[in-house]
């Protein structure tokens, strides 16, 4: 047996890592990343000019890696609160599979790599927007807002709303009103989505000491705010049609989806304080995921059909 065994190495401050590639992949928050990839793709396709498909793939990949890197930085910083929440306790850092130092290095290296790749191979505006998004999520939201204010998710939601703007900028080299409306849809969708989750996970957030809206302002106030955001979100979802960016088909689909969102939020508003099952909140949380996917899918289809019709299918 070697003199320097594991015990000795650990005493000396070394630890032989047991982290697998899968653990590092989990640091990227793949489910969040899939939403980022999809919304960035919509921004990229909806842009009025085209890009070489291979460069488009590289742009999407860079944006996805950048978003994943910010997830790794979030998991590095939030390991203490992740450990006490049932939803996050099995994440690689709190579970002890990845050390905090490994998560930090991984996040920083991928952040630099994704921004530089996007800048060198695509354009520097999209790279700057990606860098800002990573900074906003990791520093402004994770390190500052999340533990400080119940408005954490309102302001922090901007980080999740940037991907379609970055996708658009990767193609056009600019930011337009149309891409900002896509930003606005995700930005306004974020608070009701996360507050619905916070309603039925309020014990978890309270245990971790995170000032989510239900824990600070109370459930009744949170339900009212969810409904108010739903009332604003529904017409904003229809705005691309109202401004002439899409066809009436998108307008109809987005109106129906928005009405559904308001209906689910109305059900949440009518929930009683004694409701322990929180079924309306869980239903809204599920519907909000469907809403975002469906409205961006409708936008994507509308853009593609519009471009095909404009070029006469050539």
């Amino acid at each position: 047996m070697a003199l320097a065994d594991d015990r000795l190495m650990e005493d000396a401050g070394f630890r032989m890592s047991e982290a697998t590639a899968g653990d590092f992949f989990a640091l990227l928050k793949p489910r969040v990343m899939s939403l980022v990839v999809f919304t960035a793709f919509v921004g990229l396709v909806a842009a009025p000019v085209s890009i070489n498909p291979l460069l488009a793939v590289i742009a999407i990949l860079s944006i996805a890696i950048g978003a994943g890197a910010s997830g790794a930085l979030n998991m590095w910083y939030d390991a203490d609160i992740d450990a006490v929440m049932t939803r996050t306790a099995s994440r690689p850092v709190p579970a002890g599979r990845v050390s905090p130092g490994e998560a930090l290095s991984f996040g920083l290296v991928l952040s630099a790599l994704s921004v530089m790749t996007l800048g060198v191979l695509i354009n520097w505006l999209s790279a700057a927007l990606l860098a800002f998004t990573i900074f906003f999520y990791a520093v402004i939201y994770t390190m500052w807002l999340k533990r400080w204010t119940p408005q954490n998710i309102v302001i922090g939601g901007a980080a999740g709303a940037f991907p379609p703007v970055i996708g658009w900028a990767a193609v056009t080299g600019s930011v337009s009103l149309e891409s900002l409306i896509l930003f606005l849809i995700i930005f306004l969708w974020t608070p009701p989505h996360f507050w619905a989750l916070a309603l039925f996970k309020s014990d978890d957030y309270a245990r971790a000491g995170i000032p989510m809206m239900p824990n600070v302002a109370g459930q009744a106030s949170t339900r009212r705010q969810i409904f108010a955001y739903a009332l604003v979100l529904a017409p904003i979802g229809v705005l691309p049609w109202a401004l002439g960016y899409t066809s009436a088909a998108y307008g109809a689909v987005s109106a129906v989806l928005g009405a559904g969102f308001v209906w689910y939020a109305w059900k949440v508003l009518g929930m009683s304080d004694d409701d322990r099952s929180m079924k309306p909140a869980k239903a809204l949380f599920g519907y909000s995921l469907l809403y975002l996917f469906a409205i961006f899918a409708a936008y994507l289809v509308d853009s593609v059909v519009g471009q095909v019709l404009m070029t006469g299918g050539a």
Binding site: A2, A4, D5, M16
Partner: peptide, 24 residues
């Protein structure tokens, strides 16, 4: 305190650590 020694490099990895390293 651990004195730098050639033996320090003779760490025996467990099977789990070897699999994890290979995966990485």
């Amino acid at each position: 305190m651990i004195v730098a020694d050639k033996n320090l490099e003779l760490v025996t990895l467990t099977e789990r650590q070897q699999k994890a390293r290979r995966s990485r």
